[in-house]
Simulated scan of single mutants.
Amino acid sequence: MNSQEIRQEVDKSRSSGGLKQIVIPPCPEALIQLQQALAHEQPDLNVIQRIAAADVAMSATLLRTANSPLFKPIGKPCTTVGQAMTRIGLQATLAVMMGFLVSNAIRVNHPQLHRFWQRSTKRAMACAFVAAQLPDLPAGLAPGLAHTFGLFLHVGMAVLMQSVPGYGGTLVEAGARIDRPFIATENANHRTDHAVVGALVMRVWNMPPELMAGIRLHHDFAVLGGTSVEPLVQGLIAAGHVAEHLMRRHEGLPADADWIAHRAAALAWLRIDEARLAEWDEPLRPVLDAA
C-alpha cells in the first residue's frame, strides 16, 4: 500500500471499522504551531523560541538538555531558551520540544509500558543517528523525519492502553508467544493493532503522510525493496528496524524475533552490513545514555 491507500484505509476504519471506538487525544496546540513553523522552507527561529518559552516545563527541559554532558557545556550554563537553542542546534531543539509535547499529550501509566516515553526518545535518537550516517540514500531520509518516526513508532500501544480494556494482558501474551507475530496477537484479541492505531494518530494529528505510512507498515518488512511503497517510507521502516535493534543492544537485551527474521532485508535496503552496524555502537552509546 502507498501513503494514499493507507490514508483511505485509516479513514474507512475510523468511520465504520475497528478504529471507531479508539479515542485519540487532541494534538497539542503548541505542536500544531510547531508544525506550521516548520512548513516554511526557512523556519523562523524566533517563532520556535516563542513556542518553547511559552511553556515553563518545556523551557526547563530544553535548558536541562543544553546543560547536560551530551552537549559538553563550556563556560557558564545556559539560562535562557535562546541560549539553549544556540548550544544544541535546531534539530535537537525540535526533537526535545516534540518529545515533551507528545509525552504530555498521551500519558502512559501502566506497568506493561514502563518507561514508554523514555524508550521512545531513545528509539527516536537512534533513528536520527542511523539517518545521519546514510546521507546518500536515494530516499533522502532526513534525520529530523527519522527522529519523529522513532518517537511515534509505538504510540499506538499507548493509545490502545488508554482505550481498550484488557490491552495490558495482550501485551504480556504477545511478548511471550513465539508461534505468531506480535501484531497477530493484538488483532486476534482486539481486531486492530498498534501499527494501525499509530497511523491513525498520525492522520488525526495531520502529521506527514510518510510518517503515517511508515508507522502503519513498520512490521511489514516484505515491502522493503518492492515498488508498491514509496522509497522514503521504506527508508523509515528499514532505519526504524535497525534503530530498534541498536537500542535493544544498548540495553543489553537479546535480538528480537523481527530482527532475527528480517535484518537482512533492512540492512540490504540501507546498503550496510553487520560490520558497519557494529561500528555504530561506540558513537551511539553516549547519545542513548543521555536519553
Rank of each mutant, 00 (worst) to 15 (best):
I215Y: 01
A126T: 06
G235H: 01
L45V: 11
V96C: 13
A30H: 12
A213M: 08
E282N: 09
V47H: 14
R276W: 10
A264D: 13
V81S: 11
V242F: 07
I22D: 04
A52D: 05
L232D: 09
Q49E: 14
E279M: 08
A222Y: 09
V108P: 03
C27N: 15
L70W: 03
I183H: 14
T93E: 06
C27G: 12
H241A: 06
S68T: 05
P254G: 09
A142C: 07
M157W: 06
G17H: 05
Q35V: 01
H114K: 14
I178R: 15
I32V: 13
T86K: 15
F149L: 00
A131W: 08
R50G: 02
L31R: 02
Q42T: 11
V197N: 03
L94A: 00
A261G: 09
L70M: 10
Q4G: 01
S59T: 13
L70V: 02
R14A: 00
G198F: 00
M1E: 01
E274I: 15
R248P: 03
G140N: 06
I88L: 07
D220Q: 11
E9L: 12
E41M: 13
R276H: 13
A53R: 02
D55G: 06
L141Q: 07
W269M: 02
D179A: 03
V10T: 09
A176H: 12
A39H: 15
P209E: 14
S68F: 00
D55H: 10
H147T: 03
G235D: 02
S13Y: 03
P231T: 04
V130W: 05
V233I: 14
A255C: 09
I74E: 15
L101C: 09
S68D: 01
V233R: 06
G198Y: 01
P143C: 00
S68N: 03
M125T: 06
P208K: 04
V233A: 02
L246N: 04
T61H: 12
P43R: 10
E29F: 06
R248A: 07
A95Y: 05
M98K: 11
N67Y: 09
I6F: 00
V204H: 12
V172Y: 01
A126S: 09
S120F: 02
T93L: 04
G89N: 10
F152K: 03
H114Q: 08
T79Q: 15
D11T: 08
A30L: 13
Q42Y: 08
A265F: 00
L101Q: 05
A265S: 14
M161W: 12
G235E: 01
F71A: 13
A239E: 09
G240R: 11
P111D: 00
Q234K: 10
P283L: 07
R107D: 02
R191A: 12
H40D: 09
T80L: 08
A184T: 14
G175V: 12
R7P: 03
V233P: 07
P73I: 12
M125Q: 12
A213T: 08
P254M: 06
V201L: 08
V172W: 02
A60Q: 15
L171F: 07
A66Y: 09
L38I: 08
D11K: 11
T192S: 10
A264K: 10
D289I: 01
